[in-house]
Nucleic acid binder design. Structure first.
Lengths: 340, 340
DNA sequence: TTATGAAAATGAATCGTTTCAATCACCCGA
DNA sequence: TCGGGTGATTGAAACGATTCATTTTCATAA
């Protein structure tokens, strides 16, 4: 059914080698022949078989990208940035979501290995990078996304999460909040861990401020809503007056629960800070103060690094990019009244 | 660098054919041999080369999915549903976003053809399906997603958009709104066109109700905000008192502009209805009334249909699934006061 | 002991593209 | 007219997994 170079060659009255040359290095082929072959391709509707091409090349022109949660707009933005930059260099990006599951993460990596991707971009779950070591040893470059590589053994493009945690906590403290809650989890996700650490460091250095940790199983709106319910059910004297959520989805969920109840108001009773600055944080019931990460730029940069590593091969230099997060202040901490 | 079946065969002391059998039909191989081969695979870290496998098979085990906008949570949900169902059947889904550009849509289809995908799922831009005909003629099944196939020449999984438009407009009319605005575009997107038609049919049948069309170039939050500005700038007497936005992103943007201005309130001055029921519609400044589409189910069903077509080959039966949309009423039309 | 058949294992051919050493065509200067 | 050189073209080998017709092995019945 499918047309192959062989048939194109027959139609154009040339050899298969020539057809291949027309496809890949037209400058070495005479103009007349290029035209003949182009006509044959057009006539027969020939489409290159990428599998055969890859087989010969030994690897594909796809990068594999593993994100923690495809439904989180933050990761969609990262993906978008990566996709575009890759496309500009003749590569495509296969995106998979690990959904914070180690098993799924492994399956995706299996898949990418079978597909012989030209490189792996991954926002890994935890600190055991042995699987990634193996992949790189087999010749496939790996770049960590949204997560630093402690020992610099991998290239990475990340944001300083500890600093992000500090910024958020400091902001709450500056507003005079004393009973701060950190919402997020699982702790096995390093980003969450670091944001918590940052917050802890600020609270520890602040007189009579206390930090309580409200763990969640995932970083979703639904989990956020559940935490909101839990907060509503607390005794007033132990209820937090400032909440730092590990991402905007959680913050959105918490906000929803609080607002729907009608008994607690944001930011008067509870000030709320999120993380990521997804587009929807701005259009929330109460626009959410958040810590901005340059999502698209992270994606773009990660692909750039990967391209360089792929280019360099064996003796590639590891690069560490660390962006600095920025606080975006909105009504969920400062209130519309105070703001204007 | 990479280990091939040949080396595994040597290590295990068997032939390559046997290794392949162990991989694909272990039941025809003696248990002892299976163990030997498994040990060799483990020892050498062998990973199947999918390109070679595909080359032989003539097609891959990937489906290609083209959505209109990867950043729209609605399509992410569709993708998620498709991804999961595909994975359960041993397939994977390559997702690409056409970003409402015909050129990009074409590029993605080129890519999918080169990759010899086992099937195409597409939310096509316009009604010229000739490209899709060609793809199907070459033996690759095609299923339209979120869009019916007028003449039933393609299988499709969609939602009745005309009905959705009717529901939304009827709701606004029932609330006593007379000057209705439809926001959305480009009209080349059939879904938008149909929703508009539905709204028109209701308005046409309602005494002294008028419909004005506010076109947009895309269905994004940003465009929505621009429309919001435009509405704010209108003379009060020609300003709409009810808005039907072609999707929730637009609605969110419009809402943002109106609320930020502080001069017009929702729903008192303007009632607002969106479309899709994305998760963020519920957590908006004013929770948005919207028309729900069963996103994940659409994705799942589409893959089911594709699997059946792929199975059946030539003489596949075309299937048309049309879901019925449902109105989800929230404060953007009914107001918190009236609601409780 | 030998014949018989089932089970297991083999290995060559195949998929479609790319690469590269070898060949061919052609022009120019001697 | 011939040799040398350049540019264009050729065709066979290679990539790695799968398939299938063939061969080998082995247990059992005669």
């Amino acid at each position: 059914m499918a047309v192959s170079v062989k048939e194109v060659a027959a139609e154009a009255g040339v050899s298969v080698g020539t057809v291949s040359n027309v496809l890949n290095r037209p400058q070495v082929v005479s103009e007349r022949t290029v035209d003949k072959v182009a006509a044959a391709i057009e006539k027969l509707g020939f489409v290159r078989n990428d599998a055969a091409r890859q087989l010969r090349a030994g690897h594909s022109r796809n990068f594999g990208l593993v994100v923690l949660d495809a439904r989180n707009p933050f990761f969609m933005d990262v993906t978008q940035g990566a996709q575009r930059r890759a496309l500009d260099n003749g590569y495509t990006v296969l995106m998979g979501s690990s959904d914070s599951s180690l098993t799924t993460e492994g399956q995706l990596l299996d898949l990418f290995e079978e597909q012989r991707v030209a490189g792996v971009l991954i926002s890994p779950m935890h600190s055991d990078l042995s699987r990634l070591w193996k992949i790189r040893d087999s010749g496939t470059p790996v770049v960590l996304v949204d997560r630093g590589s402690g020992d610099r053994s991998f290239s990475s493009v990340s944001v300083n999460d500890v600093e992000g945690g500090r910024i958020a906590a400091q902001h709450l403290v500056d507003l005079g909040r004393k009973r701060i809650a950190f919402v997020g989890g699982p702790q096995s996700i390093e980003q969450v861990q670091h944001r918590l650490e940052g917050a802890q460091s600020i609270i520890a250095g602040t007189a009579d401020a206390v930090l309580q940790y409200l763990p969640t199983a995932q970083l979703t709106v639904l989990e956020g809503r559940a935490v909101g319910e839990r907060i509503l059910a607390m005794e007033p004297e132990q209820r937090p007056d400032g909440i730092f959520a590990a991402n905007d989805l959680l913050a959105l969920g918490i906000l929803q629960a609080l607002v729907m109840s009608g008994s607690l108001s944001v930011p008067e009773d509870i000030a709320l800070v999120g993380y990521d600055n997804i587009a929807f944080a701005e259009s929330a019931v109460v626009p959410i103060t958040t810590v901005r990460q340059p999502a698209e730029e992270i994606g773009r940069t990660a692909v750039d690094v990967l391209l360089r590593e792929a280019e360099a091969g064996e003796d590639a230099v590891r690069e560490q990019f660390v962006f600095t997060p920025k606080l975006v202040i909105r009504e969920s901490t400062v209130g519309a009244d105070n703001a204007s």
